[in-house]
């Protein structure tokens, strides 16, 4: 136990992991450095992981970019609508399904109904057609409703509910509570940590996804932030130009400058970067419940 002598292995181990940490950080640091650098230095490739010719002009440009703010608003709106809808559906379905079969006789049927959606899906094209038939194209609902009933989160919540002693429920029922009251007054207050975990999962997911905005929104001004970032990245391809007014197009050709692009990438990631070290432990908890159960 007192093995204080440092072995060759442990030195190499520290060395290897340190190098790996640095290698994993470099790409992120490079983009941050680019965003704070002089435009010419960035274009001529002189920027490494430290800004060259420090200045804020890229950020000043992004701050004045109306589309950036519009997209940020769309993202905030989808989080504000999407996450609560997510959570309500998860809680409502996880509670009955956490009961044993003898207390909820429909459980097996419902379980299969839910699990089957994880096993099979119609694919991108039928989903697209359904969304368009529902007249949800180009509305915030196309971003918030299709994924609202998340079965993985539900399973996570369900396994947490199962850990709550049945005596607590029985006591509440004897006091005259109905099932809804049991859920809201007994189960929910006891599940705040796992509720927090799922809220975080849902928020990060809503913030990060870009595909659905790209598929279901027809105009640039409806794009959530990540879709807008993705569009800038793909600007030279596909039919993105077709969506844009000449004014936006002119703006786009300016945006493709390296430093501005880097600033936008960094700003798009910033909120997550700031909070994730604190979210980590919730994630770890949720993942462990989800994966190392067996």
């Amino acid at each position: 136990m007192k093995g204080k002598k440092i072995s060759v292995f442990s030195i190499l181990n520290y060395l290897f992991l340190s190098v790996l940490v640095v290698v994993c950080l470099i790409p992120v640091l490079h983009v941050i450095a680019l965003s704070f650098s002089e435009k010419i230095e960035a274009v001529s490739g002189n920027v490494g992981i430290w800004p060259v010719g420090f200045n804020l002009s890229a950020y000043r440009y992004v701050m004045e970019d109306a589309q950036f703010w519009r997209s940020l608003k769309v993202t905030l709106l989808r989080v504000a609508i999407g996450v609560p809808v997510n959570i309500i559906l998860v809680i409502l379905t996880a509670y009955p399904l956490s009961k044993p079969n003898s207390r909820f006789h429909g459980r097996t049927v419902f379980s299969w109904f839910f699990v089957f959606t994880m096993l099979f899906n119609g694919g991108m094209i039928p989903a697209y057609i359904v969304i368009s038939k529902l007249k949800m194209m180009n509305t915030i609902w196309a971003l918030t409703l299709p994924g609202a009933m998340n079965v993985s989160y539900m399973i996570l919540m369900m396994s947490f509910f199962r850990g709550i002693p049945i005596e607590l429920e029985e006591a509440a029922v004897i006091d005259g509570a109905n099932q809804m009251q049991v859920l809201l007054r007994v189960f929910l207050p006891l599940s705040l940590p796992s509720l927090a975990t799922i809220i975080l999962f849902a928020t990060v997911a809503n913030w990060n996804v870009w595909m659905d905005g790209y598929l279901y929104m027809n105009t640039l001004d409806k794009y959530p932030l990540q879709t807008y970032l993705a569009t800038i990245l793909m600007e030279s391809k596909n039919n993105v130009e077709a969506l844009m007014t000449p004014d936006q197009l002119a703006r786009m050709s300016q945006i493709s400058e390296k430093t501005i692009e880097a600033a936008q990438i960094f700003l798009g990631a910033l909120p997550i970067m700031c909070v994730y070290p604190f979210l980590q432990r919730y994630y770890v908890k949720g993942m462990v419940v989800g994966s190392v159960k067996g």
Partner: peptide
């Protein structure tokens, strides 16, 4: 158990619309 069934309704409706409808849509 009917309160349980009631609680299941919203989730089931959402899955029907956004998961099961597209599954039938594969007839296309």
């Amino acid at each position: 158990e009917y309160p349980f069934y009631l609680m299941m309704i919203p989730g089931v409706v959402f899955l029907l619309i956004f998961s099961y409808f597209p599954m039938f849509g594969i007839v296309m």
